[in-house]
Amino acid sequence: MKSSQVAQEPWIRRFLSSPGATSAPARAQRTLLVCLPHAGGSASFFFPVSRALSPALDVVAVQYPGRQDRRHETPVDDIPELARQVADALGPVDGRPVALFGHSLGASLGFEIARLLQARGTDVCHLFASGRRAPSRSRDERVHLRDDEGLLAEVRELSGTDPRILGDPEVVRMALPALRADYRAAETYRYVPGPPLTCPITVFTGDNDPKVSADEAGAWSAHTSAEFDLRTYPGGHFFLTDHQADMTRIIRERLAPVAPQSSSSA
């Protein structure tokens, strides 16, 4: 693998490319946007984001172990450990800027990955945190300790999964181990104090999200020494499915100033 490429299978999925932007040198001219799914989610959740932002950005999504084509692998139920594995899987990025976009569990994970990458000298240019309280804010949540039906009831209440999927016993049986591990990771995560990120943070939140209060969303401001922006949308925990166009517009605008300029060629 050439140093200017980002690692691919099994962790990193790149859904779209365009003519003239498929080679490693071409990708090296664009900011890398790494998308991180919610609990129970998969990389394919971010296909619409990839479609909206490619080829201006090099959009990839992370596939956690234990789901879909990785369903035979053991899920990771600890956010710091998962962050380390994702950071390692990204591999060398050849000096170009990296942005992170995570929803719910993925937002906490994105924060920890950003900390690791910055400590390793990678240029993390932005963190987009969606549907998640600030790392320094915790709740006593124990959904991961419920029985299977209790866990599924929580998923149904948040309305982030197609009801047809939840109605298929075989699919549910295969999904439950990863879903429980994800909830355990999210609910047992505890912030370890350290220096704030040096990149801007943009937070997206729903005004009726039972998992995030306005105060908890605003508390992300303490985790960066750079700019902070809070965007509130109508909706619950999965507000982003109804507001994708505006959110991707904001991501594009925030990342445009840091996108490397293409070098001239004869």
Rank of each mutant, 00 (worst) to 15 (best):
V155C: 07
R133S: 14
S42C: 13
S104T: 01
S54D: 03
G150I: 00
M247N: 09
L100W: 07
L230E: 10
V124Q: 00
R164Y: 04
E149S: 10
D168K: 09
D147Y: 01
N208H: 14
E141P: 08
V171E: 00
P234R: 14
V6L: 11
R14L: 07
Y64M: 10
D229F: 04
P210N: 10
V62I: 15
A175V: 04
I12S: 10
N208Q: 15
C125G: 08
A178M: 09
L240I: 11
F204N: 03
L16M: 14
G20N: 03
C199L: 05
A256S: 14
R249Q: 13
R84K: 12
A186K: 04
T22A: 15
L255S: 07
A186V: 05
S4A: 13
R146N: 12
E112L: 01
P193Q: 09
L158T: 03
L230F: 01
K211W: 02
D58Y: 00
A61H: 00
V203A: 09
S138D: 03
R180V: 04
L116G: 05
G41Y: 00
S108E: 13
L158M: 06
L197T: 01
D147C: 06
L16Y: 15
H126C: 12
G121M: 05
L36Q: 02
Q63V: 07
R120D: 13
P65H: 08
S159H: 11
S104P: 00
G66K: 02
L166H: 05
G167I: 05
V124R: 01
S221C: 14
F46P: 01
T224A: 02
G40L: 05
L105Q: 02
R84G: 12
G235P: 06
L166V: 00
Y64H: 01
H243G: 13
V203L: 02
G206P: 05
F204G: 07
T122P: 05
R254A: 14
P10E: 03
R70C: 02
A61R: 03
T202M: 08
D77T: 07
L179H: 03
M174D: 10
S264A: 13
S54Q: 13
C199S: 04
G167N: 02
E154C: 08
V258T: 13
S3A: 15
V62M: 07
V76K: 00
L53E: 03
S138V: 12
S17P: 09
P135H: 01
I79H: 07
I12A: 03
D168I: 08
R115D: 05
A21Q: 15
A134K: 08
P210H: 10
S136H: 11
I251A: 12
R249F: 13
A43P: 00
V86T: 10
L179A: 06
D229A: 15
